[in-house]
Amino acid sequence: MKKATLLAVVLALGFVGPLFAQATGNTSIYVVYPRIAILYYRSSITLQPSASDLITAFAGSNPVNTGTTSISTFTAALGTLEGDATTPATPFSTNVLTTINNFYQVRANYQFQVIVSITDGTLQGDGTTGSGNILMSNVQTELNDSGTWAATVQQPNPGGLGTVHKGDVRFNLDFSGASLIAPNTSATFGDAVVQTQVAFY
């Protein structure tokens, strides 16, 4: 830090109009601004893809993109899916790439990285409507629609706390072990966990 200035300025008198006096002093000022990162995260999200999206996804051509939804529970109209999927199900893709946009947001005043991981990758059937499970794997993230997906992504230019960085997340869902319990036409699978971590680098 540069040396301080100590000023003691004596009044100077002016002679314009009424008698005028002024003193001005300067000193150095410092603010200690530590590294700060703020993660805004979704504590619960429910995925509810349409049957037609799932059918297309199983056929391997159109990843399910839910836009604004989540992971704690999963509801899909599998009854409808089963009937409609008989024709286009070759090749059948058991891993449906599922993208959740705007999964988290970050403010930071120092370069940071985001690490996503699957803490619990099993979406278990509730035993009433669905049995077996849906397995989650290969979670990745991207920042600010960059198109660069990885389990760890970095932001070298955070721009200060006034800038908000949007994070998307994607992962595979394997439906091959999930089934409906009759006579239900949809089933609920729930309680997988994706962890999002922000760190400086």
Binding site: Q22, G25, N26, Y30, V31, V32, Y33, G159, G160
Partner: peptide, 17 residues
Amino acid sequence: LSRASAGTLSGRLEVSV
């Protein structure tokens, strides 16, 4: 502080009377 980066920020305080 919306545009500042982490670190020691420095400037000058001016007081006038």
